Simulated assay, not measured.
Amino acid sequence: MLEYQAKSDALQGKIILVTGAGDGIGKTAAITFARHGALVVLLGKTVSKLEAVYDEIEASGGPKPAIVPLDMKGATEQNYKDMAETIAEQFGKLDGLLHNASLLGVLGPFEHMDMGAFNDVMQVNVTAQAMMTKALLPVMKLAEKPSIVFTSSGVGRQGRSYWGAYAISKFATEGMMQVLAHEFDGTHLRVNSINPGATRTSMRANAYPAENPATLKTPADIMPTYLYLMTDDSAEVNGQAFNAQ
């Protein structure tokens, strides 16, 4: 899927929610989905960043997006239920859900792990995504060929020293994807995961401050896999762990 090329209108008429849509991979995914015809729901905690993405999509002629300002570290289950009801009322369905937002936390030896930071990572990367998915499933079932995509990591498929809470959370992400995929196997709803790989983002820079970002793929470079999993070309693909590089 690394060389996948979608038709320009491959997402026409689809409603896709992207978390962490204010920058990095989420921003690029939102703009890319809109460029292919999707109405994108931009979810993030920084309104100014979401507004900038909104303006960029509108300026490019894409469908007018929607903005959902939400801090996943503090949001409650009721917040996600309310969001799901609003999406159902305004759009009547949800075709795609890209779980992109993640918290890196603090890297370091396991024995020095800060449990407060650990809980924050698990809240954003696991608990919030579970609550959001649970709330959105009824409105996603209203779509013809809905797709849920979780963002994983190489350290969520093979554990690595000092990656602590983040790695553990990504193993949980893979498990959540597998549980949902098995539960909905044989239905019109599919669930998969993507490991974006080493990508030129602020999170990567925080994890590897000495790394030259020019040596890394940009978010735009890895979009073929994201597009594939949101288009109907992947309608029969379920429970798979993809690499975007």
Rank of each mutant, 00 (worst) to 15 (best):
M122C: 01
F110L: 15
L50H: 10
T173F: 02
V18W: 04
K14R: 15
V53C: 10
F91P: 01
L229F: 11
A30K: 04
G116C: 04
K73R: 13
N206V: 00
G108V: 08
A207S: 09
F150L: 14
A198D: 12
G175H: 12
E183V: 01
M122T: 00
K217L: 15
T76M: 05
H112D: 14
M203W: 03
M223C: 09
P69Q: 14
E211C: 03
A167S: 15
R204N: 06
L42R: 05
Y166K: 05
T19G: 05
T133G: 06
T151D: 06
K141L: 08
R35L: 03
T133M: 07
Y162F: 14
K45M: 11
T46W: 04
G96I: 02
D55G: 07
V126L: 14
F118R: 03
G154T: 07
R35C: 01
G239R: 10
H36Y: 11
G74I: 05
Y162H: 13
P224N: 13
N243I: 03
L189C: 06
T32P: 00
G239S: 14
Q123E: 14
P209T: 08
L142Y: 01
K93R: 15
P63G: 06
V41E: 06
K81S: 09
N195W: 00
K170P: 08
T231F: 11
A220N: 12
H36S: 02
I31C: 10
A75Q: 10
S193P: 07
F33Y: 15
G37A: 11
A21T: 06
V191C: 10
D55P: 07
I222C: 07
T201A: 04
I16S: 05
E77T: 01
N206Q: 15
D95S: 13
N195Q: 11
N119C: 06
S147D: 07
N212E: 15
I148P: 01
Q129D: 08
S234F: 09
L50V: 05
F242E: 08
L227K: 05
M131C: 07
A75M: 10
A167H: 02
M72D: 08
V47N: 13
I25L: 14
H182E: 13
N212C: 10
P209H: 08
L216N: 09
W163G: 04
L104E: 12
P109C: 09
P138K: 12
D114N: 15
V155R: 01
M132K: 02
E211P: 02
S8K: 09
I222S: 04
K141Y: 00
K7Y: 08
